[in-house]
Design a protein around this nucleic acid. Structure first.
Length: 154
DNA sequence: CCCTGATTCGC
DNA sequence: GCGAATCAGG
C-alpha cells in the first residue's frame, strides 16, 4: 500500500466515520490488517476492541502460552474512547431501506466521490457487479492493469 | 463460520 | 513503516 497523503486522508475520514476496519479495507482495496496497522501507527482513536488481552491472564492463568511475547499486561486501557458508530435508522425494515450513507450495502458501489471529510463527500451507490465493490463504471477505473494504466480517474 | 479490532514481528 | 499472521472475543 502506497500511503499517500490522500490515502491517509481517506483512511482518517473512513475511520472517523466509524467504519469497520474491514469495511475501510474493502473500500480502499486493501486488507483490514493494513487498515488496522496504519490506523494504529497513525494513533487514530482506538475502537472498542472485543478482546481483553489483559483479562487473558485472569480467565486462563497459565494454560496456553502465547507464541509471541505476551502483550504488556499493565497497559491501562480501561478508558476506552467513547465513539459512536453510524446509526441505523431504528424501526426501519432493513430490506426496504437503502441507507444512503455511509454504506448502502455490500451490493452497492463504494467508489468514493468528492473530498473525504467535506460535506459533499459520498459514495457512488450504483449496483456493484461481479462481486466487486464497485459498479461497472468504477470497477473500470479501479481495476486497471499496471501496464496500461490510464490517468483518467477522478 | 461469519464478523470485530489489537498486537507482534519478519520484512 | 508496513501488514500478514495471529490472537481474542462476539
Amino acid at each position: 500500500m502506497d500511503w499517500t497523503a490522500e490515502a491517509i486522508d481517506q483512511l482518517r475520514a473512513f475511520w472517523a466515520e466509524g467504519h469497520s476496519t474491514a469495511e475501510i479495507g474493502r473500500r480502499m482495496g486493501i486488507s483490514k490488517n493494513a487498515v488496522v496497522g496504519k490506523a494504529h501507527r497513525l494513533n487514530l482513536d482506538a475502537r472498542p476492541s472485543p478482546i481483553r488481552r489483559d483479562a487473558e491472564a485472569a480467565s486462563r492463568p497459565a494454560q496456553v502460552q502465547p507464541r509471541r511475547t505476551p502483550a504488556a499486561p499493565g497497559t491501562p486501557r480501561e478508558a476506552a474512547a467513547t465513539i459512536r458508530r453510524p446509526e441505523k435508522p431504528a424501526g426501519q425494515p432493513a430490506t426496504a431501506v437503502v441507507r444512503a450513507f455511509p454504506r448502502a450495502s455490500l451490493r452497492n458501489c463504494c467508489w468514493p466521490l468528492g473530498e473525504p471529510g467535506t460535506a459533499d463527500f459520498r459514495f457512488c451507490v450504483a449496483e456493484a457487479l461481479g462481486g466487486k465493490p464497485y459498479c461497472q463504471e468504477h470497477a473500470a477505473v479501479a481495476y486497471v492493469k499496471a501496464r496500461d494504466r490510464r490517468e483518467d480517474a477522478a
